[in-house]
């Protein structure tokens, strides 16, 4: 099998016909990657907006099992709150939006979990991760990561292989998001559920308590938002229209270099 072209094991034996104008496009992203990507976008936006709203009802964070306005927070966000029981220093109280926020948060969580499970199972069985995300053996070093990072920071053009696949920094960060950060979000999220903890108490005990789970849920969110920011910036730098087109239609023009 061709090591670099095309990604996701798409059928390379189908050169495009003359009906397609301009340069010859080829299959870049498989349907599964595209559909799960956009479902994840929908779920993530829903989770982020509602999660932020829920935080506003108590914008303080604690470690351990217990935390309330009578205990000391390790982080106080100094935001106005949707509850007048929280001492914020602001002279007003935001409207309570927790009802629909919590409903939508958990519905979006189901979408994220279902999409993620499907994507991971598909990725394992089709070899997507092995082929496209897990870096080649010589690239599994800090030196290689540093090298790739420096190239990105210098805004160097990707080489042909990187342009048509994923560069090293991308590979590691996608693997981190898929196999570390999202599972951590699910773990810390479930650990805050009283019903779930009844059946599986070690899920919250291993983390160090209910409030620690809540704090970690918040901290990992920040890491995911940073990832999203860098991801979108990179897409813009790499050519927003072409990259969006590739993630929507699945097709892109291979680098000619």
């Amino acid at each position: 099998m061709n090591a670099t072209l095309p990604i996701d094991g798409a059928d390379a034996a189908h050169p495009l016909t003359s009906a397609v104008p301009a340069a010859a496009e080829q299959k870049r992203h498989s349907a599964t990657v595209r559909i799960t990507h956009w479902l994840t976008v929908i779920a993530f936006v829903g989770l982020l907006v509602t999660g932020g709203e829920i935080v506003l009802s108590h914008p303080r964070f604690y470690w351990g099992e217990i935390g309330n306005v009578n205990t000391h927070p390790w982080l106080n966000l100094h935001l106005p709150s949707s509850r007048d029981t929280v001492p914020t220093g602001y002279g007003y109280v935001l409207p309570d939006q927790n009802g629909w926020s919590r409903y939508l948060h958990f519905q979006a969580a189901w979408l994220a979990v279902a999409t993620g499970l499907y994507y991971v199972l598909w990725g394992v069985f089709t070899g997507h991760f092995r082929r496209n995300l897990v870096p080649a053996r010589p690239d599994r070093s800090f030196k290689a990561i540093a090298h790739s990072t420096m190239r990105r920071l210098r805004f160097e053009r990707p080489n042909r292989e990187e342009a048509w696949s994923y560069n090293l920094l991308q590979r590691w960060s996608y693997l981190l998001v898929v196999f570390v950060l999202f599972p951590l979000m699910i773990w810390t999220g479930l650990a805050m559920s009283f019903g779930f903890d009844s059946a599986f108490p070690s899920v919250v005990r291993l983390l160090g308590g209910h409030q620690t789970a809540r704090s970690l849920h918040f901290l990992v969110t920040i890491v995911l938002v940073l990832f999203l920011f860098v991801h979108v910036v990179m897409v813009i730098l790499a050519g927003f229209r072409a990259r969006m087109r590739a993630m929507i239609t699945g097709r892109a023009v291979p680098p000619t270099e």
Binding site: I54, V55, S57, H58, R60, E65, I66, G67, N68, V69, N70, R83, N98, R102, M192, F194, H210, Q211, R214
Partner: peptide, 12 residues
């Protein structure tokens, strides 16, 4: 047992 509010705070 722990009592927890939907706002996020808890006590035991």
């Amino acid at each position: 047992t722990m009592i927890g509010c939907e706002e996020g705070w808890t006590y035991i």
